[in-house]
């Protein structure tokens, strides 16, 4: 329309998308909102990664499958006739058992091994949990028990800039729950005795050991915390779409989030998640059609990759200093 011939492509990349944003603000706001919600969920998964990485230095590849596993346990228990809230508590219990066995079976024998070995151990854990989950619950997608958990559904819509913007109540709930959880974790980390011990372990394993903090206990606690975060993520994500093993692949998007935010920073995970979520939605809607669509599947990784070249330690990460 306003692109003249010799600058056609440049104009389509640099002018038209912004013109569209300005021209149809309701669609732009809707896109931002969708991105924000997607980003919240990425943040939640990244949060689980960060918790474990901070306390034990383990890059927990299994966080994605833990989300699926937690959600499946909840739905599976409910389908056996267990009341919804009891099932919630039992699912949390399952995550505790998982955390305890991971510490006992995987982490304890592998203490002091190189990072890459620990990463591969969680890779093995991922395989194990995929097999176990499919064996127990079956591979077909399940519907999250949204109504039984009193999660509001439906949409709020209001007029904006000559159009309508729809906000799903589910998404609002997800954001509120996520904020509460992050605030709760922040209080837990800064005010409680266990939280202080967790931070001590994150700073230095040896120093923490020497003042009498039990590493094994701390590891069970952080893996359990990561499991609880996974459960909440699973409920929210499951309510938005469905509970299936495909979530595990989507959960890999938490990795670019971590790169953006830094592996050890909780605020980083949140901010990184929101940037990635909004970035990929806006990119998909406004620049996607130029490339034939579907760029959502890799845009997050490319954003992270471009970011890495300029700031390898992430937005909030500690500077990596290596000694020979």
């Amino acid at each position: 329309m306003l692109c003249v011939k010799p600058y056609g492509m440049l104009c389509k990349i640099f002018v038209v998308p912004f013109y569209e944003m300005w021209d149809l603000p309701d669609i732009f706001v809707q896109t931002l909102w969708e991105g924000l919600v997607g980003g919240t969920l990425y943040s939640l998964i990244a949060l689980g990664f960060v918790l474990v990485f901070k306390a034990s230095g383990v890059f927990n590849f299994a966080q994605g499958i833990m989300v699926v596993f937690a959600a499946l346990s909840l739905v599976g228990l409910h389908s056996l006739g267990v009341p919804a809230f009891l099932a919630l508590i039992l699912a949390a219990g399952i995550m505790f058992v998982l955390a305890y066995s991971v510490e006992r079976v995987v982490l304890r024998p592998l203490v002091n091994q190189p990072d890459i070995i620990l990463f591969m151990a969680t890779f093995g854990l991922t395989y194990f949990l995929i097999g176990l989950g499919e064996l127990i619950f079956g591979g077909d997608p399940k519907v999250m028990i949204t109504k039984q958990l009193y999660i509001p559904t439906g949409a709020l819509s209001f007029d904006f800039g000559g159009g309508r913007v729809e906000l799903q109540k589910l998404d609002i709930t997800a954001m509120v729950v996520a904020s509460i959880m992050v605030a709760g974790l922040a209080v837990f980390f800064s005010k409680t005795r266990i939280g202080r011990a967790l931070r001590a372990v994150a700073d230095s394993h040896k120093a923490a050991l020497s003042v009498g903090i039990s590493l094994n206990q701390i590891w069970v606690i952080v893996w359990f915390a990561a499991g609880l975060v996974a459960l909440v993520t699973g409920i929210m994500w499951g309510a938005r779409s469905e509970v299936s093993f495909a979530l595990e692949i989507i959960a890999l998007k938490a990795l670019p989030v971590l790169i953006l935010g830094g592996f050890t920073s909780i605020p980083g995970a949140i901010v990184g998640g929101l940037i990635i979520g909004i970035g990929e939605k806006v990119g998909e809607i406004y620049w996607g059609p130029l490339l034939g669509g579907g760029i959502e599947s890799w845009l997050a990784y490319m954003i992270a990759l471009a970011f890495l070249l300029f700031r390898p330690q992430g937005l909030f990460g500690e500077k990596i200093i290596e000694r020979v």
Binding site: V105, I117, A121, G124, L125, Y127, E134, L135, G139
Partner: peptide, 24 residues
């Protein structure tokens, strides 16, 4: 065969962990 696939997933996962612990 579906069950076999799931079980072999579990075995592979367990094997990976086992090998990393016992024989990296």
């Amino acid at each position: 065969s579906a069950t076999a696939e799931h079980i072999s997933f579990m075995i592979v996962g367990a094997l990976i962990i086992f090998f990393l612990i016992v024989e990296p």
